[in-house]
Design a binder for these strands. Structure first.
Lengths: 341, 341
DNA sequence: AAAAGATGTAAAAACGTTTTGATTTTGCGA
DNA sequence: TCGCAAAATCAAAACGTTTTTACATCTTTT
């Protein structure tokens, strides 16, 4: 059923090495033997075994990808872009979704044992101590690594400009006259986004110390919903809300509507990411766009560079991708006549 | 940097085979050698090379998954469920998104060459002639295969009950008094859904021959938008719309709103799949729920069965999963007093 | 016409495991 | 102390390729 190079050699009446050279076009082969071999290959439906090949040339042509949650619109698009881009470059993609669980280590271990040629790692947690072990493991394995939104010494990374993105978003709200701006976020990048939020408040003379901030475990719709419930329960009043991502914004808006509040009339809302649903949502969500396709391509290109030069991670690069504020309905109109400017 | 079993053997002062037995717990090893070997393994950070293992025992512990479009909410959730379920069973997942292009063959070829232990194939096209070649290739390779929404002789499959699902959906519209029900759909399963649509019309004495049906190439938001534009351009009037999936429904609704039509007041809409966004959408979308998690688990369980018995596909099974109509706002209220019953 | 250089092909080593016989060591009753 | 089964270990073959080395054969050159 499954033929080997040996059988092809016998069929063609030549040696194994000759067949190998025909397959790989490595060396010169005479016209007549070329024909014989090609016919034998055709006849036996021979396809070189990739596993055996890997044994020799140490290349699996496989990349391991780790994302926090594949079912999340942001990550599924990111994964699609990455898979597609890798395929164009001759690689196939192993995808694992950590789903906020502690599978990351096991996934990485598995990737290493399988000798993937490279790893694209979108960490879900900003946990520096936990990361240490994993990074050590990866470094020891010598497998090229590229991370998203996560920096480590010696590894290339692509990071969104969360600080500036958030800053712009919050300034937008301030510019429209909102003064009591709350923030809800999850783990990881949400921390950086919180910085941008705080900075914007401070830059415009608002007291960041008494800002309304609520952080939760995840980044999903349910997390946003829960976060806003918690804010409401605290009894603090606010006229605008900045969210760690779009999905959380959707959840928060749901919670507000259930509480009889209207967006943007009672509360203006800004999200982050600009996933496709953001434009579909009603009210259409004002949000900070992250260029997902660009990020994915950048990640792949960076990884391929790392793999080619193989300079032991000495020349790690860090690419910062800019964001763009997309203004839609959810952030309302000017709240009063006075613009800040 | 990367240690081998040979080095471990030398370090522990035993033979390679002894180390192997320790690793796999295959045979009895004396307490003292066990300790020596374990310490050596520890010291050298040894992890057995999965590729070399594969050479021997012919198992990659890897499954190849093919989905039409990973960035589509339906497929990303499906992929997540499948990956997770496979991981629980000791398998890792290669994911490829065909994106309506002709990469399917290349993907399959790649999977076969890599000796994946099994393939889960969610075909994007209902093209029977094109499928022939691929199925032949797969059969020759002897790799266990499970398909979704696609039947082929000798292969196990999970199929949604599209006929009944659509039938119920359309009957729901009819029951509410709508009479001019249009249908828009894409390729593949949309065909079966069209049958259900037609059947419902006929069962209730509506003329299926002059039904308004518009089919397009894809299944995305843009496709739904385009399809509805085309329907509008045709000038035919309708008071309800059944869509091949939720995403298309969203697109269609967008197009209708742009044309000044209101949903559900002017036109009632029903989608298919019940992706997460369907409940978020405004108006909340009435739709036919497919139990994605169940389907994914069923696919995995079926595949694992195929792999274990390895009976050459003789005992192919076909599982039909039922759907559930989820009634929300988009299908409006009773259009007039007369219910059909 | 012999030495030197191309050219085409074959044999064998290597990749890192598992598995199979074969061989050594151990334990224990006679 | 000897013998022998059982237990523990080892050496070698196998998995299916690629690559290196070596050996013929056939052209050139001197």
């Amino acid at each position: 059923m499954k033929s080997t190079i040996k059988e092809v050699a016998k069929e063609a009446g030549v040696s194994i090495s000759t067949v190998s050279r025909v397959i790989n076009g490595r060396d010169r082969v005479s016209k007549s033997t070329l024909n014989k071999v090609q016919q034998a290959i055709e006849k036996l439906h021979f396809h070189p075994d990739h596993v055996a090949r890997t044994m020799i040339n140490k290349k699996t042509q496989t990349i391991g990808l780790i994302v926090p949650q594949l079912s999340n619109e942001f990550w599924s698009l990111m994964s699609e872009v990455i898979q597609d881009e890798l395929w164009s470059n001759g690689y196939i993609t192993l995808i694992c979704s950590t789903d906020n669980s502690d599978k990351e280590n096991a996934y990485l271990r598995m990737y290493i044992d399988r000798r993937v040629d490279g790893i694209i790692y979108c960490a879900s947690q900003e946990d520096p101590t936990g990361m240490q072990d994993q990074m050590e493991m990866l470094k020891q394995s010598g497998i090229p690594l590229v991370t998203l939104d996560k920096s480590a010494p010696g590894v290339s990374s692509v990071v969104g400009d969360h600080l500036l993105g958030s800053l712009n978003a919050v300034e937008h709200l301030i510019g429209r006259g909102y003064r009591q701006i709350a923030y809800i976020g999850g783990p990881a990048v949400s921390i950086e986004r919180e910085f941008g939020y705080r900075k914007a408040l401070m830059m415009h003379g608002l007291n960041a110390n008494e800002a309304i901030i609520h952080l939760v475990k995840g980044q999903s719709f349910a997390d946003g919903y829960g976060a806003l419930k918690a804010v409401l329960a605290s009894g603090e009043s606010f006229d605008a809300l900045f969210c760690g991502n779009d999905l959380m914004a959707f959840g928060a808006i749901k919670a507000m509507e259930e509480a009889g509040m209207s967006v943007p009339d009672d509360v203006a809302v800004v999200g982050y990411d600009d996933i496709f649903s953001a434009s579909l949502f009603k009210p259409a969500l004002t949000t900070v766009r992250q260029p997902i396709a660009d990020i994915g391509k950048e990640l792949v290109s960076l990884l391929i560079q790392s793999m080619e030069q193989d300079t032991d991670g000495r020349s790690a690069r860090k690419i910062i991708v800019p964001t763009e504020l997309i203004v839609r309905e959810s952030s309302g109109a000017l709240k009063n006549e006075m613009s800040l400017l």
